[in-house]
Every structure is written in structure tokens, then in C-alpha cells.
Design a protein around this nucleic acid. Sequence first.
DNA 1: CGCGCGTTTGAGCATGCTCAACATGAGTGG
DNA 2: CCACTCATGTTGAGCATGCTCAAACGCGCG
Lengths: 226, 226
Amino acid sequence: MKTSRLTSKDRAVLLGSRFFANLPAPAAEAVLEGASISRHEAQDVLFHQGDAIDHVFFVVSGLVRLYGTGKDGHEADIAVFPKGELFGEKAVFLDQGATAHAQAVQPSIIARLDGPKLCRLVHEEAAVARALVLLLCRHGQMTETRLAEDRLLTAPQRVANYILSQCPNGSPAFSFRLPFQKNVLAGKLGLAPEALSRAFSALRQSGVVVKGRLIEIRDREALERF
Amino acid sequence: MKTSRLTSKDRAVLLGSRFFANLPAPAAEAVLEGASISRHEAQDVLFHQGDAIDHVFFVVSGLVRLYGTGKDGHEADIAVFPKGELFGEKAVFLDQGATAHAQAVQPSIIARLDGPKLCRLVHEEAAVARALVLLLCRHGQMTETRLAEDRLLTAPQRVANYILSQCPNGSPAFSFRLPFQKNVLAGKLGLAPEALSRAFSALRQSGVVVKGRLIEIRDREALERF
DNA sequence: CGCGCGTTTGAGCATGCTCAACATGAGTGG
DNA sequence: CCACTCATGTTGAGCATGCTCAAACGCGCG
């Protein structure tokens, strides 16, 4: 892994993301001070459970998955972060080791923000504190929602849910491209790849057509009823 | 539900909790200004999914469970908050409705903190912001951990894990009392009550003795291996 | 003592996992 | 452009875990 400084393009991605968007320019600059960039191949591990973390990570491009392991070596995804998302913040602020592993799932560009500095800024800049609180709330909600879904929904229902979450509000029919391999989607939904495949089959009768990464929905109503 | 002002006893519980403990006294007082108290029977619902929330809730005594429902009416616990915990903060800060239901599981005393005021204080008082960030990080970690456990561990493993989490570090044998009904523990662990019962049976051979709410562990090692 | 709730036990069943075979697709080099 | 190859996705069969439903048990309380 080689590390370098931010290009102006990288800066643009960072500043345009959800976290930085609501920060006044000087505060954003302060957060970015001392940040570095690294490139990673697909499958590269960014850190392991237990590793000491003193950076907050930002996905400039690509995709990162956060996952835990059982003692038999099995893996379970906790979250999947697309371009523009921030992670590792909880370990930094609680000042404890990572509670999970992180792995690039596609070739990815990752920015590392100076953790201690960010902590300081949370104290000094109310705007930074506010942005961080919002980020943590959003992440917390997502995780809670996923936990509830895991416990309440069957495989086809989870997939239907995911599809609906990708859909522009109100259109009765639509289509979109999966932003990653089905592999990854299966992990994100807490399913074995085979189960995802079968779920798509089951949804075919409700008007879902899958061709490669292209998903087409004929009847939104049917999906919601599922 | 009848509402009243805080007694000095209530204040003491609040100020001694994790969230308030690290706040300077004046900041803590500011957060408590305008707070109210309510008593609830077991089974009382505090709010439903979708309800507008403009208070942050604090468990002064008792126990509250947060849960989601599927369309068939089934329920799944998202979190269980004992005395001293704070919840509802994410809905308040994101300014959206509750994403889950909340129900008292034991007779409980609940404090309601003024949400908008807390928002303002996060801006104005760095100490409040810091305390909130830490709270959100802790909650986020817990939820992520639970999500991973759900996906990685079998029922007996989850129960073994819970027992170990209740155990003072380092003692090879110990015992403790469940702080709530097995019913509730089952929900917290994402199990049907029957599954919890059977899990306890399975753990008997590893030196776990259960008598009512009293749990006795003979061989800590055996549990960790499970 | 008897009622009621919480817990336990049992039997059958459904969901999703495992493992293995097969199909498809993308990328590479002749 | 085709043949080959490797990775990815699909399908099938069997199995394990945990849920459902029902009945028995035990404890606390009137």
C-alpha cells in the first residue's frame, strides 16, 4: 500500500460528500489537514479486528466492506461503504481497537483523516461536532434497521426491500444497475450467494427481471406486498 | 401516562449515568432544564414506529425495549435499555419519526429531555457534543456487534456470549442474577423463548446451572470454547 | 388449594446453509 | 474472431438450526 497526498480531484470528492457538505470551508480544510491517500486492489484488507486505529477512513472511490468473523473463520458483513462514506470513526472516538475487519471489495481509493485531530476539532468547532453527530445517527439508524430486517424478513423480502430502496419514489416501474457484484449484495443482506440467487428467482413471479447486474421492476406494488 | 417534574432522586440517577457523568455540572443542568418524568406499567408502549419524537428518553428505573415489526405483526428487538441509558436520540437529531416502537418491559420511570434544547446545546457546549458523540459511538458499536453475532453465532453461542459479558473479568467460576425475565433475554438475543430454554439445556454440559433467574458458571473456559 | 403466568419439553416443519455440479460471462491470447 | 480459462452465478439435493404449535410443568399469589 503506497501513501501520498491528496490531489485536487480527491479533495473535490471529499468536500462534496455528505459529511463535508454542511461544513463551512475553513472547518472542512482543517479536518483535511494531514490527510493521506492510498490505493487498494480488490480484496485488500485495510485493517483487522483488534488493530489499533488512529485514522478515520473515507472512501474516495470504490467500495469497502466491514465484517466480523466467527472462530471457525466464517465471515459476516456488518456494513458496506460506497464512495463518499466515512468509517472507522467509532473505534477512533472510543479510543479502542477496531471491532471488525475492513476490506476493499473493488479497486478503491481511500483517504485517511487524522483521528486525534478530528477529535480535537469536534471540541473546538461546533459545526464539525454537528456533522459528526449526524453521521453517527445515520449510521446507527442503518445498522438498527438492518438488525430488525435480519430478524423479521425472509430472504426474498430482504431482496425486495433492497430493490425498493434503490428505486426513485413513486414510479410504478423502473430499472437500475447493481453497483457491485451479487456476491457483495448477498453479504450486505446477510445471505449466502445461493440464497440471493434463489430469492431473485422467487421474485421473478412478482415482475422482477434480472439480467447480469441490470434489474428491472415491472410492478412496484407486487414488490411492496411481498 | 401522567407527567411531572423531576424529584431530587431522579436527578441523582440522571447525573450519575454514563452520559451525564462526564459533563461539567452547569452543562448537565442545562440539559435537564425542562425535563419531565413519567411512570409506566410493564407493557406500556412509549411510542410507535412513525411517531414524531421531540424528546430524548432516559430510563431512570426499569427497562425499555426497542423493537420493529414485520407486516405479519411479528416483533424483533433492536435494543434493550436498562436504567441509566438514553434512547430516541437518533430520531431527534435526524429530525425524523421514530423508526421503531418502544415499550416498557418492567414498571419503569422515564425522563424526557427537551430534544430541541439538546440540539442547541450540542452546538453551544463542546462538552455536551463530546458526551453525545461518545454515546452514539457506544450504541453504534453495540448494534454492529449484535448484528455480527446474529449472523455468526448459533443460539447456544449467543447465550454463552451473553453470560460471559455479564462476568467479572478473570474469575474462572462465578454466578449472577438475570436482571429481567428470560422472555426478555430471548428477545434481546434474537431468539424465541423456547430456543433460549434449549440453549440453556445445551450449556448445562459446559457447567452452566440455571435456577430461576440465578445463573451459575462452573467452568468459564468451557463457555469460551463453545 | 387452585388459578395464572412464565418456562420447559416435545414433535413437526420451514428457511436458509453446505456441498457439488453445472452454466454463464468476461477477459486473454492465439 | 474464436478458443480457452478463470471467476461468477445458478441449480439441485440433503441437512441443520431454530420456529411454530401444543401440552405439561412449576412457581407465586390470592
